[in-house]
């Protein structure tokens, strides 16, 4: 089949030499129009409209636009910050040199820029100290109603990983009361409240924090068991993670399955207080290697104990 430009060579040349062609989509199509003439370009558009050539991904265009916008904002931020940083350095030098802060300055309000710089330095220092309190797991006390109500945050972590943060709103108007909280309902909060909320707020927060952190540890251990010990199934657990039932398999296929039940009666601890082992083979729970494993399960976080049991060939 002949192309349009082959059929009407003069016409095409006439238009293309005639100067500007206005086409709505710039870029690749525009280049095509310049090199091959307007009809081939129209042809291209027609094929495009019929879906015969792959379109440029509109999402990609959006992404480029987004990136440009980000660059624009970041550049503005950088330039602003550079000015500020330079100015702070200059001010630091002139402050270090001294002799600007005499009584006269206070009265006349001279040197207000230096004064502002000193105050800004203080402000930054205070903000950093507060941030540090937050990072090391402080209670982040926030006043929700001046002099009356406070919100306390209790951070939890498992080893180095920061986990859930729980909150309590306390009313201090007459007696100290917990107004609302997001502590799990199965947590013995009422008991802890009765023990020492009225008499010793730090002690109350400390014991609640111990409980919540132990809960986080038990929760994370279950996650790690599911992740790392593929041969073991977690059959049952509860909200407080105070019961954990595991189905363990022996290293050989004909080995009987073992049911391990861990009870965590001490809710401030990440370790179980009781371990029971059941198996179809009655002798197995009392075998020396399972006796050893029981001690191990009482002494170590469950995923670590299971890992050792796996390495020593007690479980698959």
């Amino acid at each position: 089949m002949m192309t349009l430009s082959e059929r009407f060579p003069g016409f095409v040349r006439g238009v293309s030499t005639g100067g500007s062609i206005s086409i709505s989509r710039p870029g690749r199509d525009m280049d095509a129009a310049r090199t091959q003439g307007v009809f081939s370009h129209l042809h291209l558009l027609e094929r495009g409209a019929l879906g015969l050539i792959p379109q440029e991904d509109p999402a990609q265009n959006d992404r480029v636009d987004d990136l440009k916008a980000v660059i624009h904002t970041l550049r503005a931020r950088r330039d602003e910050l550079r000015v500020q940083a330079d100015r702070t350095r200059e001010l630091r030098h002139s402050i270090d040199k001294g002799d600007f802060l005499d009584e006269e300055d206070y009265r006349t309000g001279e040197n207000s820029e230096i004064r502002a710089a000193l105050l800004t330095a203080k402000q930054t220092e205070l903000k950093k100290l507060l941030k540090a309190h937050h990072l090391i797991g402080g209670y982040d006390l926030i006043e929700t109603q001046p002099g009356k109500r406070f919100c306390v945050s209790l951070h939890t972590a498992y080893e180095g990983t920061y986990c859930t943060t729980y909150h309590l709103e306390l009313d201090l108007t007459r007696t100290v009361q917990v107004v609302r909280h997001d502590v799990p309902p199965s947590m013995p909060l009422d008991t802890l409240v009765q023990q020492n909320l009225q008499t010793n707020l730090p002690a109350f927060l400390h014991s609640l924090s111990l409980h919540l952190n132990a809960l986080t540890s038990r929760q994370q251990q279950i996650v790690l068991v599911k992740d790392q010990i593929k041969s073991v199934d977690v059959l049952e657990s509860n909200q407080l993670c105070s019961v954990l039932v595991l189905l363990c398999r022996g290293p050989k296929q004909q080995d009987p399955e073992t049911l391990v039940t861990l009870l965590y009666r001490d809710l401030t601890s990440e370790l179980p207080t009781q371990v029971t082992v059941e198996s179809e083979d009655d002798a197995l729970p009392n075998s020396p290697q399972w006796k050893k494993s029981k001690t191990l399960l009482l002494d170590q976080p469950v995923h670590k104990a299971l890992e050792i049991m796996n390495k020593t060939g007690v479980i698959a």
């Binding site: 950088r78 702070t88 206070y106 800004t120 330095a121």
Partner: peptide, 28 residues
């Protein structure tokens, strides 16, 4: 770059706050 400038600025501020704590309290 922004993180670097921020750190530079904060470092200067930190030094100011450290060296001139008394002056700052006086002003406050």
């Amino acid at each position: 770059e922004i993180a670097f400038l921020q750190a530079e600025k904060e470092n200067d501020e930190r030094e100011i706050a450290k060296q001139h704590g008394d002056n700052i309290n006086h002003i406050l």
